[in-house]
C-alpha cells in the first residue's frame, strides 16, 4: 500500500481534530480533539519514517506520546477543577483571563 495514503489519513484526522478544537465548546471534547491532532501527527511521523527508511520519525512519535500522556494528566486535572468550581465544562465560560 502506498505510504502516501497514510499521510492523507493523517491530514484528515488532523483537520477533524483542529475543527473540533475550534468549534466545540465542551472542554472534554476539545481535549479529545487535541489528542486526535496529536495522534494524527504521530501517524504522519510514522509514515514519514517508513517513507525515508529511518527510525527518526518513530522516535519522534514516542516523544509525542509521552507529551500527550503528560498533557492528559495536567489537562484533565484542570478540566475537573474547572468543572468543580463552575459546574460547567464549557471553555467559553472560562474567559476571565483576559486583560
Amino acid at each position: 500500500m502506498n505510504p502516501v495514503n497514510y499521510l492523507y489519513l493523517a491530514a484528515l484526522l488532523f483537520t477533524i481534530g483542529a475543527s473540533g478544537v475550534l468549534i466545540r465548546r465542551n472542554a472534554i471534547i476539545v481535549f479529545m480533539c487535541v489528542e486526535l491532532m496529536l495522534n494524527a501527527s504521530n501517524l504522519a511521523l510514522v509514515a514519514f519514517s517508513r517513507l525515508h527508511g529511518n527510525l527518526d520519525g518513530q522516535i519522534m512519535a514516542f516523544f509525542t506520546m509521552v507529551v500527550a500522556a503528560a498533557e492528559v494528566v495536567v489537562g484533565l486535572a484542570i478540566i475537573v477543577t474547572l468543572f468543580r468550581s463552575r459546574h460547567s465544562a464549557s471553555v467559553d465560560d472560562a474567559s476571565l483571563m483576559k486583560l
Partner: peptide, 9 residues
C-alpha cells in the same frame, strides 16, 4: 485578548 480559548486557538 478576549479570554476565549477558541479565539486564541
Amino acid at each position: 485578548q478576549n479570554g476565549f480559548v477558541r479565539s486564541y486557538a
